[in-house]
Structure formats: structure tokens, C-alpha cells
Design a protein around this nucleic acid. Structure first.
Lengths: 132, 132
DNA sequence: GAGTAGTTTATAATGATTCTAAAAAAGTGT
DNA sequence: ACACTTTTTTAGAATCATTATAAACTACTC
């Protein structure tokens, strides 16, 4: 399986559940945004297999820590994740409650002029809220 | 009182609780960031007066809707608000879990080149995550 | 295969937020 | 000021996403 190596390389054992979640998350050209519950539904449909909610949470967090997933900073009751871990930004359509990717080239360079002593920048994320 | 007008102008009755919350939020030169629980503590200390948690929630949301407060898009278990409603951005110190203001001039102009049909941009918010 | 360390699971616990419905306060007209 | 309506406050209950628990299970090592 193509994900076994990937998991092993980051110290995660390639379990049946993790491989199934990998299939759902990464076995597609298109990247996508999801909440934990949307992912659980997708797993159930796509694999005809129920993975415990706790495992879905654990796995998503493990993947996030390893850089396979990114959490999107947004004010919502549920956490949103992105399978696109490249450097990019988001529109958030307030009415539809949907995220839309904004490629880095759609935003132009962002220059953070202020420096904080002893801290370095880990990420720069832009959220563009849309209304009608 | 200086806040009565402000509240009335936006259709909010100037109740004792709302005026007290105004004092805590706006009777200072410095703007600040807070969670609902931090605000509740501050109210208790500063006014020697307990306002029901439900009222704090209601009032903060009413103020947010009227544009007196802004919610900061961030992934945290608690919602963060800002008394600074001017156009500006934030550092988020991941270790200290603290927000730091970034003036618009500290970031430089941001140009959103992509357009979405029928939607207009309501806000552009930049979150810069800091690590050691 | 035996031993151990990591993982999954159902369920319980937690904690932020929202809901509820009754009491209190504010607004309005007389 | 008084009667009446509407809004607000309140304590407590309900909700819902997320995290913790601890027992059963699986993967890995030797």
C-alpha cells in the first residue's frame, strides 16, 4: 500500500484504520476541506466501514501534527481541516458556510514588517470573508 | 453616561449590565483581547458585581453584531474577541497562547486578486502564528 | 510465540456555548 | 405615577464538539 511508508516514516503504525482514513483523505487529485463529522460520514460511505469517532479524532490530530493535514483558523463551532497542506489561503463564504481555496498567487506577497523578540514566524494565514 | 447614546443609536437598551460591560470594555485607551471567561472575571473585579454568564454572552454577541467588538478567527477552544475594531491583524504566540496586534502598516497591503461571482469581500484577516 | 508498546473502541466526562422560562427592568401611553 | 407591553436578565438545564478513560485488540520486537 502506498500509505504504509508515509505513516511509518513519521512514526505512526500503519493500522487498518489509519490506512482507510488515508484512502479517504489522500487518494484523490483534488484536495478538500472537512470537519471531523463530515470525514466520519465520508469514511462510512466510501469504505462501508465504521471507524470509531475517537479514532477519527486521534488520527486527524496525528496527521495534523505530522503535517499531512492543516487546520484552518476560522470561527466556527466545528474545526475545519484541509488536505491541501501547501502554503495557501482561504475565502470563507459566510452565507454558505463554505471554504474556498485561495492560491498564494491570488493573494500576492505578504510582508510581515513587525518582529517579535525570540519568536519566529511559523505560518501566515489569510482568511477573506465573503458576503453577498 | 457616555455609553447610553452609543447603545441607543444601535437599538440596544442601555441597561445597567450593558453599561457596566461598556465600562470594562471601552473605558480605557488601550484596546485588548479577551475570551468570555476572562471578561466575566474582569467584570467581577472591576465592578464588584456579578453579571450572569448568559448576559455576558448575549451582550458580547450584540456588541459584535453592532460592530463594537470583533471576533478573531483563531483555532482555540474559546472564542477570542477584540475591542480594537479597526482594520488590523494578529500574531498568535502558540506557546503563550497570546494574541498580539499587528497594525495594518506592519503587514503591508494585501491584494486579493481572485474574485468570486456575486460575492463581495467583507473582511481580510491575517493570522501570523509564532513559535520559539 | 511471548512480551510490550501502541492503537482502537465505546462510553463517560468536560467545557464552551446556547436554550429556557420565569422574574425583573425598561419603554410607552394615559 | 400607573397599567401594560416588550425587552432583558437570570440560574439552571440542554446541547454539542472534543477529550479522557480503561479495557480489548493489534502491531512490532526478539
Amino acid at each position: 500500500m502506498k500509505y504504509i511508508e508515509k505513516l511509518r516514516n513519521s512514526g505512526l503504525r500503519p493500522t487498518k484504520q489509519r490506512l482507510q482514513i488515508c484512502e479517504v483523505l489522500f487518494n484523490t487529485d483534488k484536495t478538500f476541506h472537512f470537519t471531523i463529522n463530515e470525514l466520519e460520514q465520508k469514511i462510512k460511505k466510501q469504505t462501508n466501514n465504521k471507524i470509531s469517532l475517537a479514532t477519527v479524532y486521534n488520527t486527524v490530530h496525528a496527521f495534523e501534527k505530522k503535517g499531512y493535514l492543516k487546520q484552518i483558523p476560522i470561527n466556527s463551532s466545528e474545526a475545519y481541516f484541509d488536505t491541501n497542506v501547501s502554503d495557501h489561503h482561504h475565502f470563507y463564504d459566510l452565507k454558505e458556510e463554505k471554504l474556498i481555496d485561495l492560491e498564494n498567487s491570488d493573494v500576492g506577497p505578504i510582508n510581515i514588517l513587525k518582529k517579535i523578540n525570540g519568536k519566529k514566524i511559523k505560518s501566515v494565514e489569510v482568511l477573506v470573508k465573503l458576503e453577498d
